[in-house]
């Protein structure tokens, strides 16, 4: 990975009123690399994602795209660069049906009008690769379960031709099978030479698919580790900020009981 990263953040800061959500954050994603972004609740992961996606413009620092500095002020800017994002809160329109949500903002057209047939066809294909069962692709999002909505949001990021896919806790609401499918999907994205940022609280998932783990703590970088050469304890210590933390204490307790 000697070439320039497809996406790089240099000293990015973001402030919400009194809250300094991000301070001097650095992050690099290369093509064909899966970067796991981990950190405790409120660490600033979703905020970081939103700055890349153009939902919240950054206050300070720089975003580089394929080595060149770019400015991302609006979601459109990120879309045009080739960033696709699955938000933690999904951001779907409850009143629109599955097909319309999937293609929202990038509808397929035929002679200037919406090509509902082609969109429906593509939507079915896409959803079946994620092995999700939904009652119909023509019912409003409001009538889907949480996990079904999440899969729709994930499928949405695959429409268009992104170069970087950002997944903010994509498997939080998913069952075992769908989680495995999403992890497979992440691997397929890597094979297609896309850059992936995966946010997850599940260390097993992170270790299964990520190449690199970037830890965020209280809005600051707290280490970047290659997954292969790093133990889980090291990562957890970086997340919590101490080797003596709730996780290790609990682990010690449970081993004592077992003995």
């Amino acid at each position: 990975m000697t070439s320039a990263p497809v996406l790089a953040l240099r000293g990015v800061s973001k402030r919400f009123g009194a809250v300094q959500a991000l301070t001097d954050v650095e992050l690099e994603v290369h093509a064909g690399e899966v970067v796991a972004l981990v950190g405790d609740n409120g660490a600033g992961k979703s905020t970081l994602v939103k700055t890349i996606a153009g939902v919240h413009p950054i206050d300070e620092g720089q975003i580089e795209w394929e080595g060149r500095p770019v400015s991302i002020h609006r979601p459109q800017d990120a879309q045009h660069l080739g960033v696709a994002t699955v938000y933690q809160d999904l951001a779907l329109c409850d009143n629109l049906d599955v097909v319309n949500n999937l293609f929202l903002g990038r509808e397929l057209k035929r002679r200037g009008t919406l090509d509902e047939v082609a969109m429906e066809q593509k939507a079915r294909e896409l959803l079946s690769t994620l092995s999700i069962r939904i009652p119909s692709v023509r019912i409003p999002i409001a009538s889907l379960s949480g996990g079904q909505r999440q899969v729709v949001a994930i499928a949405r990021s695959l429409i268009g031709d992104p170069k970087v896919v950002i997944l903010d806790e994509p498997t939080a609401a998913l069952g075992v099978e769908q989680t495995a499918q999403v992890l497979d999907l992440v691997e397929r994205l890597r094979e297609r030479n896309l850059g992936v940022i995966l946010i997850s609280h599940n260390m097993a998932d992170v270790r299964a698919v990520a190449d690199t783990v970037a830890v965020l703590r209280l809005g600051k970088n707290n280490g970047t580790f290659p997954v292969q050469q790093t133990t889980q304890e090291t990562i957890i210590a970086a997340i919590t900020g101490a080797t003596d933390n709730a996780v290790t204490r609990r682990a010690a307790r449970t081993t004592e009981v077992a003995q």
């Binding site: 979601p75 879309q79 951001a91 779907l92 329109c93 629109l96 929202l104 903002g105």
Partner: peptide, 12 residues
């Protein structure tokens, strides 16, 4: 009309 924030994030 359905979700303003989702529309904005979809690039509308």
């Amino acid at each position: 009309g359905g979700n303003i924030e989702a529309s904005r994030r979809a690039g509308i």
